[in-house]
Structure formats: C-alpha cells, structure tokens
Design a protein around this nucleic acid. Structure first.
Lengths: 192, 192
DNA sequence: CCAGGAATCCTAGCGGTGCTAGAGTCACCG
DNA sequence: CGGTGACTCTAGCACCGCTAGGATTCCTGG
C-alpha cells in the first residue's frame, strides 16, 4: 500500500494545483481567460486530466469559490477581533468585506455571481459560509435591539454586497465609498 | 424616397423583433439559451442579419438591458406616486424594486450582471437610468436629515440590490423577505 | 419594359469553447 | 519477466460568436 499513498497524495496535490492555477489565471486575466485548454496547458497536463478531478469547469470554479469563502471568513474574523467597541467592530468588518470584494474581484465573482450551486444550507462547504455569516452575527448582535440578529445580519450583509457590486461596475459616484459605508453603518446599526 | 422609408421602418421593426425575441428567450430559458444561432432561427433570419443590426451579442443584451431600465423606472415611479406619506413611499418603491428583480431575473441580470458597458455617466441611455435613480432620490429626500440625499439614495439602492441578488441565489433564509425589507427601511431611513 | 447597379441576405466556414471516447503507455504485482 | 490494471494523451464531437463571399432581390435610369 506504500505506492498507493503516494499516488493519492500526488493526486491531491495536482487537484490543489488545478484550483490554484485556475484562481491565479482568473485573478490576473479574468474568468473568460480560464478555459479548460488554457488551464490544462498551464498545469502541463492534457484536458481530460481536469475531468478526472472535477466533473467540469463549473466544479473547478466552485472549488475556487470555496477557497474564497474560507479566506473571507478569516478576513472578517481578523477584522472583528482586532477592533474594540461595537461601532468599531462594525466598521472594521464592513471595511474588510468591501476591501475583500474590491481587491479580489474574480474570486468574489466566483463566490457570488457564478457558483450559484454552492448552497448555504448544504453540507458541501457550509463551514466557511457559516463562519463568515457568524462574524456578521457577532458584530451586529449588540445593535439588534428588538430585531432578530439573524435578520439584521442578513440585511447588513446585503447592503455591503450591493455596495461592492454597484461600485465595482462603476454605477455609483466616484470615490464616495467611505461615506456610503459610514452611512450604512450609522443608520443600519441603530435600533429604533 | 418612398421605398426608402418603408425599408427603414421594416428595419427598425426587425431590430425590435430581435430585442423582443432575445428577451423572451432569456426570460423563459435563461441567457445561456440565447445563442446567435437560436436567436436567428427564432426570428427566421440567418445569423449575419443580427450583425447588421448590432455589433455583437453583447450589444443585443445591452439593448435588452436598456429596455429593462425604462421599465424599472416606470415601475418605481408608479409605486411612488401611488403611495402617500414618506414611510409608505419608501416601502412602495423598495417593494417595487425587489419585485421587479424577482419577477424578471433574466432582465435584471442583463441590466446589472451583464451589460457592464452601460455606464451611468454616459450619454447612451442615461435617461432611464437617471429616472430610476431619481425615484430613489425623491423618496429618500425627506429622511436624509444632515446626510447628502444622493449618498443615502445610493446606499438604499445598494441595500435593495444586495437583497435581491442574495435572495435569488438562495443565500438568505427562506421567506423572510418582507421582514428584511421592513428592517432595511426602518433603519436606513431614519436620520440619527 | 428592360438592363445595370446597389442593397440585401444566406451559405459556408474560421477559430474557439466544454467535454469525451478510444488508443496508447506506464507502473506495479505475481 | 510477463500480464494486468491504472493512467494519460490524441483526436474528435457538437456547439459557440462571428465573418467573408457569392447569390438573390430590389430599385432606378434610359
């Protein structure tokens, strides 16, 4: 069974190589540049190898998206724990979120625009998703007032998601990002 | 010059036919079903005819998106004028917006996910875009307080956009749409 | 009414896509 | 050392967006 382990390990490594290469390609040249031929050439294997690891291109994108959710959760957690105070935590998490979306547009697209098959209530990769949402819950809890924290967290998240997308497509005025973020936090996080 | 006019008119009609067919196809079977071959077959012309009207498939989608912006602006305006009172107007516009996104997902995608070339500060089709945004401005004005109305309108819009997208991809809990909408309105539209 | 020119449209094809069947090669094991 | 199984590659399918070129139709001037 000795070689079997090596084969398995090498296989796992190659799978990681595929995911990493797809992500790098997407982040540097956009997802439209990530074709199965190009990806195969980049990892120095033939196309069919990709299909021995993933059921198709969509599955590869989903794998990249899963990585993204892990990193997003990490970033949110780091922002929250580094901040002190309710208002500061909210602002830190909000900023970390929009920064993430702005700095990794291709990754963010894989997570939210493509890869719709990644459900929240599923068992495929719910850990990172729930972990990310938990950060919102944590930071929003103190200002929930009579409202359900889950509801407020979802709405807060939606606001950030909308801001990230609209700003990226150039549909909001110039550089007022900070002002909009402040407005969102100021208003959304004050119970009536 | 008599036949010239007829030709022109027929040409314009065919262009409308292309846009309408593309939209119907997208709304019934999704944008992935809208191929130039399929579209050409549907209008009973050959593929090159499409390219005598539009520079490419993207331009056709943009034309559909432009139609969508007109209808969205109309829907928002209707909702606002039908409502009386500040709070009611806000709720009506918000509901009209999310209803629009939910009932016409393909159209909404064309407007916001694809067709990124439709800029806000451009002269191509800014009328409907500005008209739609104007409705937000109108309805948000009374509750702006010390904040700039434009900023609040953008943030309000972003919240609705985020809610629409996240709910559609099944990433928010079940049927709590009304509660989230109420929460967004209650909190976002109260000056500190 | 007809010939010529212009406008229009379609057939055929290019290079590309995601994906797969089958052949070939290599590594392992008895 | 030979057989067997796992693995990988070549070649190809059906489709995509898009376009060159020829055929057909239509309008116009004589």
């Amino acid at each position: 069974m000795a070689p079997g382990n090596r084969r398995e390990r090498e296989r796992a490594e190659r799978e990681q190589l595929i995911i990493r290469t797809a992500r790098e390609l997407a982040e540097t040249e956009g997802w439209e540049a990530v074709t199965t031929r190009r990806l195969a050439a980049e990892i120095e294997y033939s196309q069919p190898v990709l299909y021995s690891h993933f059921s198709g291109k969509a599955a590869i994108m989903t794998a990249v998206a899963a990585e993204g959710f892990v990193e997003l959760a990490t970033a949110l957690r780091a922002a929250r724990t580094a901040a002190t105070g309710v208002r500061e935590s909210l602002a830190a998490v909000a900023r970390a979120y929009t920064d993430f979306a702005r700095e990794r547009p291709a990754l963010y697209d894989a997570m939210f625009t493509h890869a719709v098959d990644l459900q929240f209530a599923s068992e495929t990769t719910p850990d990172a998703l729930q972990a990310g949402f938990a950060e919102f819950l944590e930071v929003v809890g103190p200002v929930a007032g009579p409202d359900a924290p889950g509801l407020l967290a979802e709405t807060f998240w939606a606001g950030l998601h909308g801001l990230a997308l609209l700003e990226r497509s150039g549909r909001l005025l110039g550089q007022a990002h900070d002002d909009r973020l402040t407005l969102l936090i100021d208003r959304l996080t004050v119970p009536r």
